[in-house]
């Protein structure tokens, strides 16, 4: 565990807490893509299959449970909570995310570390996480202005994977055996997808203006 990875995990945790705060405090999920949340729930479930078989550390196990639990709670809230579900932008959140699931699964069948059930689902979850933000970014562009908490949610989510890239660079130089190419390349693609969001987020912060993404 190095500082970059720990910071990345904390940014990831903060992003989920910001989202939970927004939904709980405003009792609204406008501007949030349910499809992205569903993809993240699938990412965590398929990545943490080893939750009960391999024990790495208390931190590792607790964080896995928190990620699975919080994302499941967000998906539940957006679909079933009587008040929150009314504010879901159903007609804007129309990204066909099943294609992402299918494409990532086919890719995982070809590109994986070992051809085992667990490894294929692990590679699948890595590829899916890279593209899981797409429905959310598309929704933000369609809904035009972005409210602060949603903007911070996407910002912290991007920062988390960016710090993981620093973590992989650090591990590449510090450990003789580096076999995280799947995570590394997928993580680069994932962070690149946030690049334009970061650009507009920075502009809005610099001009102290409302975050507005060009349609």
């Amino acid at each position: 565990m190095n500082i970059f990875r720990f910071a990345g995990d904390m940014f990831h945790l903060i992003s989920i807490l910001v989202l939970l705060l927004k939904i709980y405090a405003t009792k609204s999920c406008s501007g949030i893509s349910l499809k992205t949340q569903e993809l993240y729930a699938l990412v965590f479930v398929t990545r943490y299959l080893d939750l009960f078989t391999d024990f790495i550390s208390v931190y590792n196990t607790v964080m896995k449970l928190v990620f699975i639990g919080s994302t499941a709670a967000i998906v539940w809230c957006m679909q079933w909570h009587p008040v929150v579900k009314r504010s879901y932008d159903r007609e804007l959140d129309t990204f066909r995310h099943y294609f992402l699931v299918g494409a990532c699964f086919v890719l995982a069948l070809f590109l994986h570390e070992n051809f085992t059930f667990q490894e294929i689902f692990w590679a699948f979850s890595i590829y899916l996480e890279a593209v899981a933000i797409l429905p959310q970014l598309v929704l933000l562009q369609r809904s035009g202005n972005v409210d602060n908490l949603t903007g911070q949610y996407v910002f912290f989510l991007g920062a988390y994977r960016a710090f993981y890239i620093l973590n992989w660079i650090y591990r590449y130089f510090m450990e003789q055996r580096f076999s995280r190419w799947i995570s590394c390349i997928s993580g680069l693609v994932q962070t690149a997808l946030y690049a334009d969001f970061f650009y507009y987020y920075f502009l809005s912060w610099k001009n102290n203006a409302k975050l507005h993404l060009p349609a």
Binding site: N60, E113, N114, Y164
Partner: peptide
């Protein structure tokens, strides 16, 4: 034996 890469990252 092929060292099974433990995924110690989240």
């Amino acid at each position: 034996s092929s060292v099974v890469t433990k995924h110690d990252e989240l």
